[in-house]
Amino acid sequence: MSEPVLVLEDLRVTYRTSGGAVPAVRGVSLEIPAGGSLGLAGESGCGKSTIAGAVLRLLPGTAEVSGRVLLAGKDVYELKPGGLRAVRWTAGAIVFQGALHALNPVQRIGDQIAEPMLVHQTVSTPKAAKTRVAELLESVGIPARRAAAYPHQLSGGQRQRVLIAMALACDPQLLIADEPTTALDVMVQAQVLELLADLRRQRDLALLFITHDLSLLTTYCDRLAIMYAGRIVEEGPSGDVFAGPSHPYTRGLAAAFPRIGDRSSRMAPSGLGGDPPDPAALPAGCPFHPRCPLARPECREAEPALRISGPERRAACILV
């Protein structure tokens, strides 16, 4: 297999706040092969969006990062500003959540898509940029003539497509999608995700898909990593993980998405009890033990490491 497009080695991110240090990511290692896809799932506050920011070095100054991030073979945290800019967009690009806020309301969408291309000089003339913008818009299912439109003239789904077109502008190898469809209706969400899947097939694009919706990841990603309290607690091929979770947390999360037609979930909604832990005050031992239906006394003592739980699967639970 070729070189992986993204490697995280023991990534740690701590936010300095007035209330002290808050660890958001506590030692995450993962790998996405070229053209592969990884789904990162977890509750709000588990650190999944921090990882998205850490990969492209987009975190605020209060974040302290350690460990290594290799994007297309380059260590993102050792790059000079110029090299960093080149890596952003061309090696990895991000599609944010909330398409309304990520677009400039007073600039035509065509100009916004052209901007990174002109900055990175992937096109030489404004005319070439225009042609490329038209191609990109068509490729995300928006008629090229809409390049002259302003964001408010587009629907939510179209704006999300524009953001995808922007991310694709410099032909990145990796696309990071952080809750790309949260605010969208189900049908529009499906349209956008199918579009992403098509684009991936056409361009051999790798995908890091971050969401709290586990059921989306099983459909659109090869592999799945479940995060809890800043760590990966389970990972493996997505179908296997969703169908037969090893970690009790994954099991609770998966049960929150019922399979329509499955008698066992009819009139029996299930999920996890309790609330996500406060990153500033994590419980001792396994951070999941206060909410874990299977917790034992020894779970309070030490935080379990990831261990093999099946073919190509790992989970961080002493019961594995």
Partner: peptide, 10 residues
């Protein structure tokens, strides 16, 4: 959050 969903529905 997805994990809370089940409890509220229940």
């Amino acid at each position: 959050d997805a994990s809370i969903r089940g409890e509220i529905l229940a």
